[in-house]
Amino acid sequence: MFDFCLHVLTLACLYGLMALALNLQAGYAGLLNFGHIAFVGVGAYAVGIGRLAGWPLPLSMLAGVACAMLLGVAVARLGRNLASDYWGIATLAVAEIVRIVVLNQSGMAGGAQGISALPGPLDALPETAQPLAFAVLGLFAVALAAWLSARLAASRFGRALRLLREQPALASCLGYDLGRLKRSATLASAAVAALAGSLLAGYTHFVSPDYLLAAQTFLVWSMLMIGGAGRVAGVLLGTVLVQGVYSFVPLARDLLGLGSETVGALRLGLIGAILLLCLLWRSAGLLPERLRTLP
C-alpha cells in the first residue's frame, strides 16, 4: 500500500508539472492551448528515441526540451493571426498530428507498440529505493516549478501577461508586443511540459502514442479548471484532487466488487461530475485567482 501511495504521489507530481506548465499559458496569459500534451509527448519520446540512438539520458532530455520549445515557437507563430478560440482548435490539431506521426513511425518511434525499457534518471539507485527517491525527485521538481510560477506571476512579466489575457487591445496600445508575450509564455510552458514528459517516460520506462491522447490534455485542463486557473495553489489542489480520483477509484473494484470496465467509466464519470459541479458553483475553481493588492 505504501508503494502504491508513493506511485500515486509521483504521478501527481508529474501531472502537477504539466498542469503548472499549462497554467503559464492558459492561466496567466489566457492562451487556450488544447494541444498541451504535444509538448509532454515530445519530451517523453525524446527519451525513447534517445535510447534507440544510444544517447545518454540527460542529453535526450535536453533534446526533448529543445524540440518542445521549437514546437512551441511554431505553435505560437501559427496563432499570430488567429482569434484565441480558433488558435485552440489549431493546437488540438497540432497535437493530433504529432500523435499520428509517432503512431506511424514504426522505425524511429516504435509505432503503436511504443518504446520500452527506457532509462530512468534514478537507475543508479538500488531498485527498492527507487520509488521513494522518484517521489522525492517529483516533489522537488514540482516545488521548484511552483515557486518559479508564483515568482513569475508577481513579476512585471506576469503583470504584462495578465493585461494581455484581460484586455489585449489595451496591452497593445500600451506598447506590449503581444506576439512576443505569447511566444515567451508558450516557450516556458513547453520547456516545463517536456521535462515532465521526460520524467514520466523515465518513471514508467515506457512511452507510447497513448501518452499523446487528446484526453490527456483535457485531464490536465480539468485539473486547472477544478483547482483554479491562474493561481499556483489552485492548480496544485486540482492536480491532487483529479489524480486522487484517478488513482483511488480503482481500489473500489476490490472493495465493492466492481468490474474493470465499470471502474474505468466511474473514474471518468466522477471527474466529469466534479468538473460540472465546479463549473456550476465555483466557476473560477476551488481556489480562484486573487486580486493582487500591492503595498
Binding site: R159, R162, E166, Q167, L291, R292, T293, L294
Partner: peptide, 10 residues
C-alpha cells in the same frame, strides 16, 4: 474596457 482581475494600481 478594463481588466476584471487586476486592481486599478496594478
Amino acid at each position: 474596457a478594463m481588466p476584471e482581475k487586476m486592481t486599478v494600481f496594478e
